[in-house]
Amino acid sequence: MTIVITAPTGQIGGQVVQGLLDRGEPVRVIARDPGRLSAAVRERVEVVEGSHGDPAVVDRAFAGAGAVFWLVPADPRAASVEAAYVGFSRPACAAFARHGVGRVVGVSALGRGTPMAGRAGYVTASLAVDDLIAATGVPYRALTMPSFMDNLVRQTAGLKSDGVFTGVLPGDHKAPACATRDIAAAAVRLLADGGWTGAGSLAVLGPEDLSFNDMAAIMTEVLGRPVRYQQVSGEAFKARMMGFGTSEAMAQGWLDMALAKADGLDNAEPRTPESSSPTSFRQWCADVLRPAVNG
């Protein structure tokens, strides 16, 4: 049966699409701008144009779907974090049940059951989406992740000019981090496997815990240039985001998430053979960051 992919032009969704096509799976994508899909992908997938927050769009896309990959897109100008995540997901949840979708795999976050989970901004909202999907009765697996290594690509300019990357967390705070390619690989395995039932989660933790100071040392070696981490205040971080056009509510949600991570939000999940994804930070730097910085 057809597998539906949301956010197919994003860094995770695009890799999920390619992974499923490599396996020969039938794929349908929901894309606001189909022109952003490569010609090679467009030739091999069915495209439903529009937003996957639109009831009419998901109604068309989920008809006859055996599985759905669910990823809430970034909405930096949303009026609230709840609206950006839970409100956006409600039409899809109704359509999962209405069309008898076989299974859903979603992108979520670590932290369930921790004291920080209720005050963690985007993470709190992601966990609420998991609950919303699970309540429909559709078999569901939430991929629960720490911070993405790939987010550092956004700081390429600072790494090029000054050899500096910044963040709110203390430089010596150790935590897991994962590569988006490992998230996509986990999603592909679950989407293609029709043998699981019920609601649950799968953590994708990367192979090791590192601090930002550790990362700076590794980047220095891989990039062949000095790199250091600089902690910034929460107020400065929020102001900078709002300066880029992010709404006050969404900037606060991002800051709340960062502060919860500093309090140990991502450290409660034990690393197991199943959750220890293969890509090390050093390997990711060589494969992804170095070409971005040198490009």
Rank of each mutant, 00 (worst) to 15 (best):
245 G>P: 01
40 A>L: 11
53 G>M: 00
199 A>E: 08
183 I>A: 02
130 D>G: 14
129 V>C: 03
246 T>W: 14
252 Q>W: 06
227 V>W: 08
69 F>R: 02
198 G>D: 02
40 A>Q: 12
257 M>V: 11
153 V>T: 14
189 R>P: 11
253 G>K: 13
252 Q>G: 15
250 M>Q: 07
52 H>F: 12
80 S>K: 08
91 P>Q: 01
117 A>N: 09
64 G>Y: 12
282 R>E: 01
280 S>N: 05
48 V>R: 00
98 R>N: 00
289 L>Q: 02
203 A>H: 05
49 E>M: 08
170 P>Y: 06
99 H>P: 10
16 V>H: 15
138 V>G: 02
17 V>C: 14
47 V>R: 01
43 E>F: 11
60 R>G: 00
12 I>W: 02
78 A>N: 13
104 V>C: 05
273 P>Q: 12
201 S>F: 13
39 A>T: 11
80 S>P: 12
220 T>G: 06
111 G>D: 03
271 R>W: 13
284 W>C: 10
48 V>C: 01
218 I>W: 06
27 V>L: 07
18 Q>L: 12
121 G>Q: 05
118 G>E: 09
17 V>H: 03
10 G>P: 04
236 A>K: 10
287 D>A: 14
187 A>Y: 02
243 G>E: 10
228 R>I: 08
61 A>R: 01
48 V>K: 11
129 V>Y: 03
247 S>H: 11
104 V>H: 06
97 A>N: 10
151 N>I: 09
104 V>L: 13
150 D>T: 07
133 I>M: 12
237 F>K: 09
1 M>N: 13
3 I>S: 02
171 G>D: 03
59 D>F: 07
292 A>T: 11
15 Q>T: 08
252 Q>S: 13
210 L>K: 03
160 K>T: 11
3 I>V: 13
266 D>R: 06
30 I>K: 05
141 R>C: 15
128 A>C: 07
62 F>W: 02
95 A>L: 13
47 V>C: 01
15 Q>P: 04
125 A>W: 03
252 Q>I: 14
229 Y>S: 07
260 A>L: 05
33 D>W: 06
295 G>M: 04
141 R>K: 09
216 A>C: 13
231 Q>A: 15
57 V>M: 04
197 T>K: 07
208 E>M: 05
255 L>T: 00
213 N>P: 10
183 I>K: 07
266 D>V: 10
216 A>I: 07
22 D>M: 00
8 P>V: 06
218 I>V: 15
122 Y>N: 09
211 S>D: 00
10 G>E: 05
97 A>P: 04
79 A>I: 04
61 A>D: 11
173 H>D: 12
23 R>Q: 14
166 T>N: 04
66 G>W: 00
275 S>L: 02
23 R>D: 11
242 M>N: 08
73 P>K: 02
134 A>Y: 13
280 S>L: 06
268 A>I: 04
233 S>W: 09
59 D>K: 07
38 S>G: 15
61 A>S: 03
26 P>E: 00
52 H>L: 12
259 L>Y: 08
183 I>F: 05
70 W>V: 08
251 A>K: 15
163 G>N: 14
47 V>H: 00
